[in-house]
Design a protein around this nucleic acid. Structure first.
Lengths: 224, 224
DNA sequence: ACCTGAACACCGTTCAAGT
DNA sequence: ACCTGAACACCGTTCAAGT
């Protein structure tokens, strides 16, 4: 039952006051912001660009948002929501950890421009994020881990995942020896051999590293 | 032999042209920038604040610098210079990796405000940084590692170190369950047990994680 | 309640004018 | 060669005025 006024044209009104129907809300703003970041990198997320993409003036956003920082928190929550942590209910701990870590990293690698943004932000204690931690912790607990060893293990894994996602966003030629070629034989040889495998070095590093850290953690753990 | 003009007072000149003696250079600017970041966080590094700390106008900086980004690269190089990689010449690989990783992380933890800044930057291929990689690669080589496995191992370790440094800068109460207390028993129990140990969770995570990843890497490696 | 547009105090960067 | 100060095109954020 939406009675539009019978104005002469459908052209948008100018210099209006309160709109007749709701224009903005949290969900709309967060989605638009995420879209902007994914499309153009995190430096394209400006309040004015965001407002434009919502056909609204920048100041209008502040009726729904405290600050730009808050919008970035919203984005973070949306993205974290994509991490699948149900694997801890179905797989043994080592396999669950591997699967969880892979989706976790993929989510962020798929939103590469988000990484520097999230690096500046504290990981939010949002309900959804806490639910994820609960599932991970439950996985460790039912595998018989001592309670006090669980948090360090989770944090260590997350540090690795996050660092790897960060690394995956780095340009591919960062290791280019350039003019220093010749004076660094060991490193150059290693680079050459790695290149010859045809694998993305960030991917290879993630998978070998993940296997190493998971194996290492499980080997060291003295269960309760 | 510095003949100051016999002007009436020592007050700084105004509206001057080219100064009689050199006022700025790369070293001076980089040091001042680092000092600023360390003192006040990375958001305090503005061209105008930097210029002020050098008693110069903002535009003067652009006679020595392409962009703010370039200054950040300089800072990164200075900081990376503090990482000690001589350990690979004196210690067996596992111990060298542990020692190197610890100083690496400590350097960044000691420059916490730098992390988000560096997270946005590609790791520079500066000569000094390449020297470090050469020493690390040499360590792996003389331990008999297959060449193609060396780069992934280094990258994995760096990802972990960097992620850990990032984590160490996070606020301490990020895991505070808040109003969700009660619905996440496993995670809360783990948090409580970890807190009872009296250890910083970031530190505990770093050391257990580092041991795990180093052990895991060495256990998995099939040497050449 | 919730929009617009003007305004504020910043940014990084450019450039003509000065010595 | 290398400084200053004015200027430019932006930022995020505030707020009075409008409906």
């Amino acid at each position: 039952m939406n009675h539009e006024p019978a104005s002469s044209t459908a052209a948008p009104r100018r210099r209006a006051g309160r709109p007749r129907s709701v224009v903005l809300d949290r969900e709309l703003i967060a989605r638009a912001a995420l879209k902007l970041v994914v499309a153009g990198g995190y430096s394209t997320l400006t309040m004015s660009a965001l407002a434009r993409s919502l056909s609204v003036s920048p100041s209008a956003l502040y009726n729904h948002v405290e600050s730009k920082q808050e919008i970035m928190q919203w984005i973070q929550e949306i993205v974290m929501d994509g991490v699948d942590s149900t694997v801890f209910e179905t797989l043994p701990l080592d396999e669950a950890l591997m699967a969880w870590a892979v989706t976790y990293r993929d989510i962020f690698a798929g939103h590469a421009p988000l990484i520097p943004l999230i690096a500046v932000l504290p990981v939010s204690g949002s309900p959804r994020t806490l639910e994820m931690y609960e599932k991970v912790a439950a996985g460790f607990t039912s595998a018989g881990w001592k309670q006090e060893d669980i948090i360090p293990a989770i944090v260590a894994l997350e540090s690795f995942i996050f660092g790897s996602a960060l690394d995956a966003t780095a340009p591919l030629d960062i290791f280019d020896p350039g003019e220093n070629a010749g004076s660094i034989p060991n490193f150059e040889g290693a680079l050459e051999a790695q290149r010859a495998t045809g694998r993305h070095s960030a991917d290879a590093a993630f998978h070998t590293g993940l296997r190493a850290i998971v194996n290492g953690l499980l080997a060291t753990s003295r269960t309760a």
